[in-house]
Design a protein around this nucleic acid. Structure first.
Lengths: 189, 189
DNA sequence: GGCCTAGCTTAGCAGTGCTAGGAAATCTAG
DNA sequence: CTAGATTTCCTAGCACTGCTAAGCTAGGCC
């Protein structure tokens, strides 16, 4: 009985180990460098063990990394917004969002390159995604969802294009305040 | 002499053949389905022939497809904007941009997933990219480049997220007019 | 004729994700 | 403590990938 739970715990531990190894390697060298052989080496077991944890193979591992990523992204954005309002909140969230993409490029890639069904602004969306969407919606004070979709688009596009070397790095600050202006409350009304 | 040019022409013809085969297959089944074996089958030659045209292999082929894509995207956006101004122009360009991504998902992916050095708003950028950037800058009446970078970010993010199934498809029109509002000239001033 | 140079193909390498089959370790009884 | 059952794991290998070295074969040139 006690062994049962101990075994289960070790299994879960190993599952997390796999995900951590995949995430770290991917962030450092890209997803192409994350091979089943390397991954199994990293955890000290042979390849088939990976499939007992993630029957879907590499794709399922990437998906799991992606979902964890949404949780972390949400946490960071929420913390950044804490206590702020209006443009200040928008800019803080934007910076937090972009920083996350910079810190974990491969995790970010998995989060959006993977098809994870359902739109963000939907009722039956994975809770991890829904939570992330809600933070953005609250930040720009949108209850319909359309403005949030556009805001998210801008953030996502900027994140990707920054890392693809398509944006001028030294203009990051200008872009962020531009976001604050375009999506913030109109000052005179 | 005549043979020389005739041979050269056939070579170029075959090069275009390769690119067309790669583009079509990729748009239909994704880049993973574009293998050197299939590609060489499609053009009726063996694999090494591909490398005489594109020494860089698959990566160089994707890059060539991407650059062609920028030309086509620019053409479409310019045509859409033709004769329009302000919000109307922005919305028309946005629709053209998003439609391009929908029509050629894999080409679009190659255009942005590939690292093609240099930012858009730079002097020594590949002319294909620079031209595309300029169309967007003109559309929103930006001469600094920052607003254009943000506008492009929004378009790019929206394009990607639409195809990843993260945006509500039926709200496409709303998102486009939202773009017009956020990036258009302020009506009252 | 003999030679040389393109243009092309065959065959193969090292690496990928993934899996069938059997070995080994562990648990469950008698 | 032993014997059987079950879980856990590894070895070996498949089909596929991008890519390349080596050689074959046709054409032009002396």
């Amino acid at each position: 009985m006690a062994d049962q739970t101990a075994r289960r715990r070790r299994q879960e531990e190993r599952g997390r180990h796999i995900l951590a190894a995949a995430r770290d390697r991917a962030d450092a060298q890209g997803w192409a460098a994350v091979t089943t052989r390397h991954l199994s080496d990293a955890i000290g077991y042979s390849q088939p063990v990976l499939y007992s944890h993630f029957p879907g193979g590499k794709a399922e591992i990437m998906l799991a990394v992606a979902l964890d990523g949404f949780v972390e992204l949400t946490r960071r954005c929420r913390a950044a917004r804490d206590g702020r309002q209006g443009r200040s909140a928008i800019e803080a969230v934007a910076v937090a969002y972009l920083d996350f993409g910079g810190d974990h490029p491969a995790v970010y890639e998995a989060m959006f390159h993977q098809p994870i069904d359902t739109p963000f602004a939907h009722d039956d969306t994975r809770p991890e995604l829904r939570a992330a969407f809600d933070v953005l919606a609250e930040t720009i004070g949108d209850d319909d969802g359309t403005a949030t979709e556009v805001f998210w688009s801008a953030l996502h596009g900027m994140s990707v294009l920054e890392r693809a070397g398509r944006m001028r790095p030294e203009h990051r600050g200008l872009r962020v305040s531009e976001l604050g202006v375009r999506f913030g409350p109109t000052p005179a009304r």
